[in-house]
Design a protein around this nucleic acid. Sequence first.
DNA 1: CACCAGACTGGATTAGACAA
DNA 2: TTGTCTAATCCAGTCTGGTG
Length: 228
Amino acid sequence: MFEWFSIVRVTTMEGVRWVLGALNDAAGPVSKNQAFVWVRRMQELGMIERARVPPFRGTMLYATPRAIKKRAPDLLRQTTRHELMVSVISARYIHAGWHWDRDLDKAEALHEADGVASSDGVTDLVEVELTAKRRTRYEEVFRSFRERLDDDPELRVVYLCTVDAGRVVRDALTKGAGMDIASRTYVVDLFGRDGAWIGDEYPAGLFDATSPKVAASEPIEGIGAWMR
DNA sequence: CACCAGACTGGATTAGACAA
DNA sequence: TTGTCTAATCCAGTCTGGTG
């Protein structure tokens, strides 16, 4: 758990539930209660801190310096919501049997993805996109990804988006450098407007290491079934 | 004692009524 | 149409009581 905390730094009860589930070989996340009991015990031991920050729903959790030898994160930064979502995504990847790490093993000049998930023979560069970037920025990012995909045939790119961001990303994949990486890029509309993961199910294709080239750009059929 | 289902809680969100 | 107030509703997080 603390190895994971050390990577993601800050998370939610949701993230804790999925990673505990993974460590317990459970089919899904552990119950809210189990997660709560674990968190409370760790809090008593001074290993975990909890905080509620009004604009966000839910409780933020982070490991104390005592637990991971890193200073506490600043919960009021603008990027905190994004970091929380990345942590929950990583929890889901880990639960699906993948290994998760930060994207630090890359050349200096290249774009740093939000995280890197690897399973046997496949590595996903994962981007969590809650708000769309400028078009010109995508061109730069995609060029960087193209360079990395050319070097490593096992690499894929995965964009986990809100509906609005997903539209822009798909569009950007139809031009310039985007066209070159589109066949190895998977775009999923995963978040509602509020940035929360929509549904308990895994979308088809996501976390699937066996399908090497997931069809790009098309919104997933039947997405409404697990949207709620 | 661990575990689970379900109850409870406080804050956030939504809907409706009404006035300006 | 816009703003404001209130009540109703929702929900994540928390707690409790029963069970094995």
